[in-house]
């Protein structure tokens, strides 16, 4: 299978205003094949967002190579290869729900009719068809995040980058959103997802691979294949294999942060 993301010896050092250097990431190497669902998990500050933002060309690496679909990240961004979902929904408050979803299509110069039709379709996909003309403040947090997913999918990118998209949601809503995301991903078999999370069960439930990271400096501690059967559903969480995989991830996380730290 071909890699859509290819990362070699990537590192990132931030230089603060006081001249102090922070080694956010060191020597990251990772290949992500097309069509995979990959989660990045690790303790706070281990560089998950930094890695995702380098893939998105929102910040530049200080060492190593990174290609997306064979291109530089900058070229990939200019070619609109990816959609980005932030931790906060980041909807424009002056736009209605449907106009928010149309935003990328406007910038990419799609025709008016096509914009409307595509935005409608995406809102149906995230089950917000009845909320087209609402303003963002009229929606709950989970609904807002669904709009932002619809917006990221509207121009059919081959890559979906998500930085803790459900981090601010309660457990119930989060599980529901997980199912919706899996449904959407299944409906778009070509699409690759890179998903940052703090939640072990979320990572295992969703992913085909979980990348466990360790802090100071950020490194990849272990890559765990998740060979749970698909389609996944509430029964998946009751499988022995699910428990087995979550404890493997938990173990890798604990190894990563050092044995001095308890559960």
């Amino acid at each position: 299978m071909t890699s859509i993301i290819s990362i070699k010896n990537l590192s990132k050092t931030f230089r603060g205003a006081d001249g102090v250097e922070v080694h956010a990431l060191e020597n990251i190497s990772l290949d992500i094949p097309e069509g995979e669902f990959v989660s990045l998990i690790g303790p706070s500050g281990c560089g998950k967002s930094t890695l995702l933002r380098m893939i998105a060309d929102l910040i530049q690496p200080t060492g190593g190579q990174l290609t997306i679909n064979g291109k530089t990240p900058q070229q990939a961004r200019k070619d609109r290869e990816y959609g980005f979902v932030f931790q906060s929904a980041t909807l424009y408050e002056w736009r209605t729900v449907i106009k928010n979803v149309e935003l990328p299509l406007e910038i990419m110069k799609h025709s008016k009719d096509e914009r409307r039709a595509r935005a409608r379709e995406m809102l149906k996909l995230v089950e917000l068809g009845d909320f087209e003309e609402k303003y963002p403040w009229q929606l709950s947090g989970g609904m807002q995040q669904r709009v932002s997913i619809a917006r990221a999918l509207a121009f059919q990118p081959r890559l979906l980058l998500m930085d803790e998209p459900f981090g601010a949601l309660d457990e119930m809503t989060r599980e529901r959103m997980n199912n919706e995301l899996l449904r959407i991903w299944t409906a778009m078999p070509e699409m690759t997802v890179v998903f940052v999370t703090h939640s072990i069960s979320e990572a295992v439930y969703l992913s085909s691979r979980v990348v466990v990271m360790s802090p100071r400096p950020g490194r990849i501690a272990e890559v765990i294949d998740i060979d749970l059967p698909r389609p996944r559903g509430s029964a998946t969480r009751d499988l022995d294999q699910f428990f087995h995989l979550t404890s493997r991830v938990r173990h890798a996380l604990r190894q990563g942060v050092g044995l001095g730290i308890d559960e």
């Binding site: 998105a56 060309d57 929102l58 961004r77 200019k78 609109r80 990816y82 959609g83 980005f84 932030f86 906060s88 980041t90 424009y92 935003l103 990328p104 406007e106 910038i107 990419m108």
Partner: peptide, 17 residues
């Protein structure tokens, strides 16, 4: 807000947009 601007960058939007 910085993410509102980054959203635009992720679309490779020009200064006019």
């Amino acid at each position: 807000p910085s993410t509102a601007l980054e959203l635009m960058q992720s679309y490779a939007a020009g200064w006019w947009d």
